[in-house]
Design a protein around this nucleic acid. Structure first.
Length: 743
DNA sequence: TATAGGCATCTTACTTATACTAT
DNA sequence: ATAGTATAAGTAAGATGCCT
């Protein structure tokens, strides 16, 4: 039987077939077509039999671990067929609400971003590509880690906005920069020729991956509309197809991976603003010092076109470089979840986990896949957080459970089959669906890690395996949260509650034991305990945890100095290797001005490194003085807040919502989910009456006192009050007060 | 096409207490 | 003396973004 081996790029539904786009072993780009009729399962009610559908097979499946005789029913429209069966009272239906291409992947075990082997024969060409027709089975080729050489192209368009944000119904595309990994170019000229050249370029370069920053959210739609208006056929997909909207707000380009690297920002909590510059900087890439802001593009196009084009080329290059850095991770996520690489970044965590679970259910556990339905959200108790001992502590060890919740799920076999509604646990049962699914992830992760270690340093294989283990960890860690998500197919709040209850029980016993051993417990949160760094006692504690609880705890880090306020989840410390950790405090929050964050970090540095309260106070006072006198660049005063709903839906008048509303009225494209940057200006009234878009404010308008008192002083006082300094000492005027004069 | 709950903190919106004014 | 009103003080709720 002839076989074709290929690396799976994209899956598309054809006429009665599923078409697989891939890169074959020899480097050929191929399309392999499979005849595929979708199916669903019916647990028949008494009496119902094979007459329920035209093509029916009897199979054994499990429902929450219990074996059942089921019917597998094939139908072109499974949703309709299932609905019909339900209406006729023929039984309970499962797995009928999956999309065809998804079901194909789930049932065959094929993974996008991985290698596949298909029994197939050559069948001419399809849209100019070698086509194969399946003659037998198709399966994943296990154990082959590295992706083939992919052709990757990135692009960055520039639009010329007449005012505010560019609008596709009005403002033209004036340039598109392209980068193929070695050379840059920018298409300019009249719009029609730019768009035509773009389409031609893609047809000629024929990339497997098209990379952009915000392609899904902005560019594909914008460019499609402009092309339509200009009468240019926007055939950027393989076989000349046009982009089309798909699930998760993702845009599909047939035969290619359309990768919008802006979506990777979700995976990086350190990056607070979804901007290419921020992400690139985080990834350690060089970033132009003066990147133009959106509102400057129009002027720059007139005044310094060369600079704008060079910036645009940087953007295209940066997007591709980011892709290169994350591609192994993305392909791994794709392989684990079975979702195409471009979908997997766009999809929310819950859906990634769910896709993994559905594959595991169908391929390994033979569990029925429950339909998605709206469940009432139930809250339950979460992790335990200790009240910290406020003040400055020296030599503190942070003890951490290794993957506490995943360990609990497996160790106590917490699953839908084993946890009763009242939260009690059925002992002695076979490992349940969730623990098994989780164990599989952890096994694979352990294997990836050990294989990575065996691979030569710096090798492709090692890099890929390390990305794979990170991706596996990401999914494993999200399984607990998934059980408490009311949108989940396997929604199980009582299981989630049982997991956290065990967690609380365990951490409580660890705290008691630590105290019993004479360790001072300073703080703890969910799966961590901060104790005085007494190596002998800690060793004893870890030994006890291992032998008595059967769980693993490690010394995560040691703080030479660590400062706690009265507040939970907020502290800062200097580690043995000299790094300053800031946790939860203003300095790590995206909704505080840069000046307040910087001042707070400096105060912390002085306090924790030099150990001088007096110098820390002086540092805070310097910053307050500086701000009050207006000696700070405006960009350090911007406060960013996310617009979490339409501005008019806010019950309380919020500054950023008012600013967003005004910006919209002025023609800015401010969407729900965007961060709105504003400054507070002088004048009467509430903050929301004095908030302005950050780019509209001049230095003489700024309410410097607001920044001095409510931002800088507040952030510094938070720290200094923990060491007995009152905020009034920071705010008192002058260098030395009257007490110095009289004292 | 929202993983979870726990938490701090700021601002706004509303309530209550207090001081002051007009009758 | 009393009712009415402006203002301060106090509190609840809305909103955001962090931690594990």
């Amino acid at each position: 039987m002839p076989e074709v081996r290929f690396w799976l790029l994209d899956v598309a539904s054809g006429e009665g077939t599923v078409d697989l786009w891939g890169v074959a072993e020899g480097g050929e780009r191929v399309v392999v077509s499979f005849p595929f009729t979708p199916y669903f399962y019916l647990v028949p009610s008494r009496g119902a039999g094979r007459e329920v559908g035209a093509r029916v097979e009897e199979v054994e499946r499990f429902r929450l671990g219990r074996p059942l005789r089921c019917l597998r029913i094939y139908a072109d429209d499974t949703a309709r067929a299932a609905e019909d069966a339900l209406r006729r009272g023929l039984g309970d239906a499962y797995g009928y609400d999956l999309r065809r291409a998804d079901l194909f992947l789930i049932s065959t075990g094929l993974r996008p971003g991985s290698w596949a082997v298909a029994e197939a024969e050559r069948a001419g060409e399809l849209w100019g590509y070698p086509a194969y027709r399946a003659t037998g089975s198709v399966r994943a080729e296990e154990g082959r880690v590295a992706a083939p050489d992919l052709r990757v192209v990135s692009f960055n368009p520039t639009y010329l906005a007449r005012r505010a944000s560019p609008r596709p119904d009005r403002d033209p595309v004036v340039a598109i920069s392209l980068y193929d990994g070695s050379s840059s170019r920018t298409l300019i000229g009249d719009e029609r020729s730019i768009l035509e050249s773009f389409v031609e370029y893609l047809a000629r370069a024929d990339p497997d991956v098209v990379v952009s920053f915000q392609g899904n959210r902005v560019h594909w739609d914008y460019l499609s509309r402009r092309a339509r208006a200009a009468g240019v056929r926007f055939s950027v997909g393989r076989g000349g197809s046009e982009p089309h909207g798909s699930v998760y707000g993702h845009v599909s380009i047939r035969g290619r991976v359309n990768l919008d690297v802006s979506e990777f920002v979700e995976e990086v909590p350190e990056v607070k603003l979804e901007r290419l510059e921020e992400l690139a900087r985080y990834m350690g890439m060089s970033v132009p010092e003066e990147a133009p802001e959106d509102y400057e593009v129009g002027d720059l196009w007139e005044s310094d076109r060369a600079a704008l084009i060079s910036y645009s080329e940087w953007r295209a290059r940066a997007a591709l470089e980011i892709f290169s850095a994350i591609s192994d991770y993305v392909f791994s996520l794709s392989a684990i979840t079975g979702m195409p690489p471009d979908h997997v970044l766009t999809a929310a965590t819950g859906f990634k986990v769910e896709n993994y679970l559905m594959r595991f259910a169908e391929l390994e556990a033979r569990e029925l896949i429950p339909p998605r339905r709206e469940s009432a959200h139930m809250t339950y108790q979460g992790g335990m957080v200790l009240q910290p001992e406020p003040g400055l502590h020296h030599d503190v060890a942070v003890l951490d459970f290794k993957s506490m919740y995943p360990s609990i799920i497996i160790k106590y076999n917490l699953s839908l089959e084993t946890v009763r509604e009242d939260g009690t646990i059925e002992e002695g049962r076979e490992p349940g669906f969730l623990p098994r699914a989780l164990e599989r992830l952890l096994e694979e992760r352990a294997r990836a890690r050990s294989e990575a270690e065996r691979s030569p340093e710096g090798s492709t294989e090692r890099r890929v395996l390390e990305a794979k283990q990170r991706a596996l960890k990401r999914i494993a860690n999200a399984i607990y949260g998934y059980t408490g998500w009311s949108g989940a197919r396997w929604y199980a709040p009582h299981v989630a509650a049982a997991i956290t209850a065990k967690g609380r029980e365990i951490i409580s016993s660890v705290i008691s034991k630590a105290r019993g051993l004479g360790l001072r417990v300073i703080y703890g949160d969910t799966d961590s305990v901060f104790v005085s760094n007494d190596a002998r006692k800690i060793d004893e504690l870890l030994g006890w945890i291992s032998s008595e609880l059967g769980l693993e705890v490690k010394v995560e880090k040691v703080y030479v100095n660590v400062l706690f306020t009265e507040a939970k989840k907020r502290y800062a410390g200097v580690t043995a290797d000299g790094r300053l950790d800031v946790v939860g405090l203003e300095a790590v929050r995206g909704d505080w001005s840069g000046v307040a964050k910087r001042a707070q970090v400096e105060v912390l540095e002085v306090l924790l490194r030099e150990g001088s309260v007096e110098r820390a106070v002086e540092r805070a006072r310097e910053w307050i003085r500086r701000v009050r006198s207006g000696d700070v660049p405006l960009r350090d005063l911007v406060i960013w807040k996310q617009l979490t709903k339409p501005p008019e839906d806010y019950e309380a008048t919020a500054a950023h919502a008012i600013v967003a509303k005004r910006m919209r009225e002025a023609g800015w494209d401010v969407r729900v989910g965007d961060k709105v940057g504003f400054l507070v200006v002088r004048g009467p009234g509430r903050i929301y009456e004095r908030a302005r878009p950050y780019f509209e404010v001049t230095s003489d308008q700024v309410d410097w006192d607001y920044y001095a008192d409510k931002q800088v002083a507040a952030a510094c006082a938070r720290i200094l009050e923990a060491v007995g300094v009152d905020e009034s000492r920071l705010l008192a005027a002058g260098g030395r007060g009257l007490e110095a004069f009289f004292g």
